[in-house]
Write a protein that binds this DNA or RNA. Structure first.
Length: 899
RNA sequence: GGGCGGGUAGCUCAGUUGGUUAGAGCACAUGUUUUACACACAUGAGGUCGCAGGUUCGAGCCCUGUCCCGCCCACCA
């Protein structure tokens, strides 16, 4: 038999196993027919991966979703359900383009000089080079996804899906193009959607100045702004219609500072009389609110900035200045002309680009939009009617709130990397050609002079189609027919709007079905102090480094048991370390079990006679399986993992394995059946643990299988040994046979006695090797205590030959220390270690404690609790009271005999 | 301005149908090379579950109020 390493060496295992799994085809749906003609009678479990950004490196967010999704998928696969987890990557428009541009800049090149086509080639090359990096890293995490079905959002098939989606929406009149107030990112020189703007509170200045009246330059209306450069684009000053201070000016004209352009004073209820000066400058082209007011009052729209946020020809003397330089300059100039009143420190919210971090400039640009109202209606209904369940449930409210107030979606981006919008402009007839395949001529006038729209689509447009585009939509492929709609969508709550909501809406729109039935949202990962990880804070934990040091299983297990859905999680290396220890514990328990195989005989002479420990661990295992099943059904994965951990370490390894040593030393049938139990518990535990810690369990299981096959009489899993643990059968709890509770209770009593004796030994500072004599006294438990002599003696260091159980005490053993455990008296002969003064003290303390308990319980049981609480609960308390009463008398006797 | 989450042992966190002396890991103290594991074993110390009310026979868990911390949404110059 092969020697197992003393510690679990994950480095030797992970890569090897992953390769093997993959080559064996286990990642593909179970029982996949050659022709992909699936049995429609069996409902598959399908999950599409949140596509990773091609340019990104692995971070803990990936670890989180892979750990969870792989757990779900492995669990279902073991349950025998055809299971598909589709992997893939996202072209991530802005992020990727930025990266490549950065790289080019280092080489002294720029996309403008190389032109669009060349640049796109450059990005593709980058994608080929780095795109596989992230998927390889996801493989390292053990992700059991079907790589044969891997997709990329810019793949041909997915691009077809994007076109189909665009054209259909357009044909339904749900896509329109036009000038609107947009969030303009001057650095990226593209529009971004509302979601891509972050509002950050920052200290700034509020600038107060004068709007002089055209016909009476001595008079003025005081106005305040945080952005003085926008004065150049002002086309009105607004006051509240009922504001007595300013009513007289309504209808008059005032002069724009510096430019001396004449603009009207208008009345609008939007103006807050209490705020600032109570009068508002209106820049319809550079402020969303002013835009609305401008529309209402038919104001002039003056755009003063170009695409780089540099002042244009409308800015008069300021043309060519950057927006912030202009801010300074115009204020200086106004000061000189005595047009300013004051400046005041002010905290305001600044819109910043989520990507580049630069300040977003609201600007009127021509963009493509998707009308959201009808889509949102359907999206709301699907969740309201329970067709889609969002977990944790509270996020349903967040989802509703967003969709109920959703604005039209700006889907065009002035980028080069992405799906180019399938619209062609005709130079001759000016009409648009919208097509699924590239047209050669205008569909209206037949002219050959057509140009494709240069804008690309928002990257989330294609990811919004992900659950069905990856399965072949719009083609009616076998995969699409069988696997759609998918089952589970698992992702971080931070992209609920960006991604999940859009998948739901687009899925309903295009496929007529909800794209998945459950959304499981995990929290974000923070450092051990609960702070968001960021490079600037230098608190980023690199999962690759952690895996290198502690192993993948340890990291995965940490993510799973350390978190609850929807709540952010702090991760610390200490935790990972503890779970590395757990992996090692699994390994060594397995090593022990496997190592014992040689020591047992091949065939038993008689039917099994199970010991209390055997029965106990078996019963506990059944209970565990039931609990785990229940928790999985409720998506309480972390709690399930915790319970398996507790069982495996705290019960199997700490107690059963120790007693098994004793039983195996007996040899013969006893050894045989003990080893059988050991293997059975181990096998089952490995199955339960596999979705959490796939590598160590598979490796150990293979060893267990190999060794067990040498002794087929000893143990066979119910359905024989499968090829691999990852496709082995998920354990099924056996129905309770009625004896279990009593065995579990008896064993708990043994544990209690052992702990009490160990405690006494430690307190009295007994040398650990010293075996001591003991007398146990109990009329009711006598049989049990006699039968369990050996385990009790072994575990608490008693001398078996001087172990006595008496129904009642005739005479107190000389030189012994008395204990009472659940009504059972225990006398340990520790003569030379006893200080009778201390003993009395100890007993007094114990008596006091138990008296308190008795008092508490008597009070409780004589209250209305006894009538109103369920019987079972009351009985439990009564039993407790009985045990205490039993104990207290004995304790008192013991104390008295010492005095 | 609206909504949500968290506040439980020194630290990081579990604790889902409310059941009656509250759990884990780490850290801490003491002891141990016990033939699977020192990435271990044994024993121990450590908490009025943010605060104040309420419902209930019974509340960490449900309700109300309140204080901190964090997040999301929203157009206040």
């Amino acid at each position: 038999m092969k020697e197992l390493a003393k510690a679990y060496e994950f480095k030797d295992v992970e890569h090897k196993l992953y390769q093997w799994w993959q080559e064996s085809g286990y990642f593909s749906p179970w029982n996949e027919p050659e022709n992909h003609d699936f049995d429609p009678g069996i409902k598959p479990y399908v999950l599409s991966i949140p596509p990773a950004n091609v340019t990104g490196g692995l971070h803990l967010g990936h670890v989180m979703f892979v750990a969870l999704e792989d757990l779900m998928v492995r669990h279902q696969r073991m349950r025998g359900v055809p299971t598909l987890w589709i992997p893939g990557t996202d072209h991530a428009g802005i992020a990727t383009q930025l990266q490549v541009e950065k790289m080019l800049a280092l080489q002294g090149r720029s996309r403008e000089e190389m032109g669009r086509e060349k640049f796109e080639q450059e990005v593709w090359q980058w994608k080929e080079k780095y795109g596989s990096q992230i998927t390889n890293q996801i493989r390292r995490l053990g992700a059991s996804c079907d790589w044969k079905r891997e997709r990329f959002t810019l793949d041909e098939g997915l691009s077809d899906a994007v076109r189909e989606a665009f054209v259909r929406l357009y044909e339904k009149g749900m896509i329109y193009r036009g000038p609107r107030m947009t969030n303009w990112s001057p650095g990226l020189r593209t529009a971004v959607s509302d979601l891509e703007v972050e509002y950050v509170e920052e200290p700034g200045l509020l600038y107060y100045f004068k709007y002089r009246l055209a016909d009476s330059p001595a008079e003025f209306i005081p106005v305040a702004t945080t952005r003085p450069e926008t004065i150049l684009g002002d086309t009105a000053v607004a006051v509240h219609p009922e504001d007595e201070r300013y009513q007289k000016y309504i209808g008059k004209t005032v002069l724009v500072p510096i430019l001396d352009r004449e603009i009207p004073v208008i009345a609008d209820e939007y103006v807050d009389r209490e705020f600032g000066t109570g009068s508002l400058k209106i820049t319809p082209s550079h402020d969303p609110n002013d835009y609305e007011i401008g529309m209402r009052h038919n104001l002039q729209f003056i755009n003063i900035l170009d695409k780089n946020a540099v002042v244009n020809e409308n800015g008069g003397p300021y043309q060519g200045l950057d927006r912030f330089v202009c801010r300074e300059k115009i204020w200086q100039d106004m000061k000189e002309k005595e047009l300013v009143l004051k400046e005041q420190p002010y905290i305001h919210t600044v819109p910043r680009s989520q990507r580049g971090g630069e300040i977003i400039e609201p600007m009127i640009t021509t963009q493509w939009y998707v009308q959201m109202k009808p889509l949102a209606e359907a999206g709301l209904e699907a969740v309201r009617e329970g067709k889609i369940k969002i977990l944790p449930e509270r996020f349903e409210k967040v989802y509703f709130n967003w969709l109920e107030n959703v604005q039209d979606w700006c889907i065009s981006r002035q980028l080069w990397w992405g799906h180019r919008i399938p619209v062609w402009y005709c130079d001759e007839c000016d009409l648009l050609t919208i097509a699924r395949t590239d047209p050669t001529q205008c569909s209206h006038c037949g002219s050959l002079k057509i140009r494709q729209e240069t804008d690309v689509l928002d990257t989330w447009f294609s990811s919004g189609l992900w659950p069905f585009s990856t399965l072949g939509w719009p083609q009616e492929t076998a995969d699409y027919r069988y696997f759609y709609p998918t089952t589970m969508m698992e992702t971080g709550y931070d992209i609920l709007f960006f991604w999940v909501a859009r998948m739901i809406m687009l899925g309903l729109e295009f496929t007529g079905q909800a794209p998945f039935d459950t959304v499981y949202l995990h929290g974000l990962i923070r450092d051990e102090n609960g702070v968001k990880m960021s490079k600037t804070k230098n608190n980023v934990i690199d999962p690759l480094v952690v895996m290198e040091e502690m192993g993948t299983d340890a990291l995965r297990f940490t993510m799973l048991v350390g978190s609850t859905p929807g709540n952010d999680t702090s991760i610390s290396l200490k935790k990972v370390e503890a779970n590395r220890n757990f992996a090692n514990k699994i390994w060594n328990a397995g090593r022990f079990v496997i190592g014992n195989l040689e020591r047992v005989s091949n065939t038993p002479q008689a039917d099994p006679q199970w010991t209390l420990a055997d029965s106990w661990i078996w019963a506990r295992l059944q209970e565990l399986i039931r609990d785990v099943d229940r928790l999985f059904a409720n998506h309480q994965y972390g709690e399930a993992g915790r319970q398996i951990y507790e069982f495996f370490w705290g019960e199997f390894a700490d107690w059963y394995v120790e007693i098994a040593k004793l039983q195996i030393n007996k040899g013969g049938d006893r050894a045989f059946y003990t080893e059988q139990t050991l293997i059975r518990i181990l096998d089952t535990s490995l199955r339960l643990l596999h979705p959490f810690t796939p590598f160590v369990t598979e490796e150990l299981w293979q060893n267990l299988k190999e060794a067990s096959l040498q002794k087929p009489d000893l143990y066979q899993p119910q359905d024989g040994w499968e090829e691999a643990l990852m496709i082995a059968k998920w354990p099924q709890a056996q129905a309770s046979e009625g004896w279990e509770d009593e065995k579990v209770k008896s064993f708990a009593l043994i544990q209690e006695i052992v702990r009490a004796i160990r405690n006494a030994r430690t307190e009295k500072k007994l040398p650990p090797g010293r075996k001591i004599a003991a007398v146990l006294v109990s009329p009711e438990m006598r049989e049990l205590l006699v039968a369990q002599k050996e385990p009790i003696a072994l575990l608490s260091g008693l001398d078996q030959d001087r172990y006595e159980v008496l129904p009642s005490l005739v005479e107190k053993p000389q030189g012994s220390t008395p204990l009472v455990v659940a009504g059972i008296e225990v006398y340990l002969s520790l003569a030379e270690f006893i200080d009778s003064g201390l003993e009395v003290e100890r007993l007094e303390k114990e008596i006091q404690e138990i008296e308190n308990q008795i008092e508490r319980l008597q009070k409780l049981l004589s209250s209305s609790f006894a009538e109103k609480a369920p019987m079972a609960v009351v009985n439990k308390e009564r039993e407790k009271l009985e045990t205490y009463c039993n104990s207290i008398e004995k304790l008192k006797e013991q104390r008295n005999s010492l005095e």
